[in-house]
Design a protein around this nucleic acid. Structure first.
Length: 370
DNA sequence: AACATTCTCAACCGCGGTGAT
DNA sequence: TATCACCGCGGTTGAGAATGT
């Protein structure tokens, strides 16, 4: 194992930090700040590299660090955010004040490890045999899969696979979407068709998890064929009590701070502004109508949108053609809640343009801001 | 009690992005 | 434009703690 390029010097200490070292670092940072980490070790009298000092400060010594177990709300937020941004721990951590990316990453990895270790047969049994140590996330401890399906994104199609492989096999070469699928399975979601996985007719879960699934995400394309991902947000089961709402309402209120938003929607700020304007202008649309929010920072707006019915029907056909490579019937009630990408009127041609030009498509609930 | 196994989490590594020169 | 140094991030490791046998 080599050393950092910044710490090739002799006498650079490695390994666990001693209380004395911590004290030196804290004293230095609190009096001088940390403008240049490479200078910190020398000025603080530490035989560490700057990188190590930075890590120690950020992950452990920061005064605003929040330690202790993750709350249920934090867990839900992590799950939802991970479904959107994947292993972008720093992004996820930015939504959890006082938590570090390292902490979240460790938490997630240990959780996933537990899931992978579970034999497939266990997924059809009750959770009574699951370890219920306080270390286990509730959602993991109560993960009684109700499905034998795993959703994979592959080569332009989303597919349902009967669960014939162990989690270990599935996860071994998996990207985060596959892991999501595993998780979703364990949340009892994957038994539904992907496009309806969050649908209003999904039965309440008996897992103790909120029965309103905030979102469902699946990969529809190979890397060379955008969109690389689609996020389907349910409407009927989302409501404003979801913990994500508060988080992203705050984000919406500060759309000039794009760094707050995950990159997935960095390019969507125009749409979001438009959506916010819509809320402001339409008296019939209250915050209670902003029933859905996904971690990507999008919102679904509810309201009277009869005049969009034809557009939606047309969109439905398009989606059925382009997305519906499987047998399930499109649910009209669900279709009611599918729209819409920008302030543009949706046509088959601009839908195609959207799909060819966008890295990701985010379908939100119907709005009527045109 | 002793040993084995599993879990937790702090720390390290290497890569990519960015800004200065 | 190329190079370099630095920073931040995600992946990984490994020591110690906790738990199981």
């Amino acid at each position: 194992m080599g050393h950092h390029s910044c710490c090739n010097q002799q006498k650079v200490k490695r390994g666990l930090w001693s209380p004395e070292e911590d004290e030196k670092l804290i004293r230095y940072i609190t009096t001088h700040g940390y403008g240049c980490w490479s200078e910190v070790p020398e000025k603080a009298g530490l035989q560490r590299c700057g990188k190590s000092c930075r890590l120690r400060w950020i992950n452990y010594l920061r005064p605003d660090i929040r330690r202790g177990r993750f709350t249920a709300e934090e867990e839900k937020l992590i799950i939802s955010l991970h479904a959107i941004v994947g292993n972008r721990w720093a992004h996820i951590a930015s939504h959890l004040p006082g938590r570090t990316d390292n902490e979240i990453k460790n938490y997630w990895n240990s959780w996933i490890k537990k899931k992978i270790r579970k034999p497939p047969a266990a997924s059809t049994t009750t959770s009574s045999s699951a370890k219920t140590s306080p270390n286990n996330p509730p959602s993991a401890a109560c993960s009684t899969a109700t499905s034998d399906h795993v959703v994979h994104g592959a080569h332009g199609h989303h597919q349902l696979h009967h669960h014939q492989t162990s989690f270990g096999v599935t996860a071994a070469g998996a990207d985060h979407l596959q892991l999501d699928a595993i998780i979703n399975q364990n949340l009892g979601l994957a038994s539904l068709p992907p496009k309806l996985a969050c649908g209003g007719d999904s039965p309440p879960l008996s897992t103790g998890l909120p029965h309103q699934c905030p979102l469902f995400m699946f990969d529809t394309g190979a890397a060379v064929s955008p969109p690389s991902s689609l996020i389907m947000t349910s409407t009927t089961q989302m409501h404003h009590h979801h913990p994500l709402i508060a988080s992203f309402t705050a984000a919406m209120a500060d759309v000039d701070a794009p760094s707050y938003l995950p990159p997935l929607v960095d390019g969507m700020l125009g749409s979001l502004r438009c959506a916010m304007d819509c809320v402001g202008e339409d008296d019939d649309v209250t915050t209670d109508h902003c029933q859905a929010a996904v971690p990507a920072g999008a919102m679904a707006f509810y309201g009277d949108h009869d005049h969009h019915q034809k557009q939606q029907q047309h969109l439905q056909q398009q989606l059925e053609q382009q997305l519906g490579q499987h047998d399930e019937q499109w649910d009209d009630d669900e279709a009611q809640h599918l729209l819409m990408w920008d302030q543009e009127v949706l046509t088959s041609s601009n839908l195609e343009a959207m799909q060819s030009g966008a890295h990701s498509l985010l379908f939100m609930g119907p709005n009527d801001h045109d």
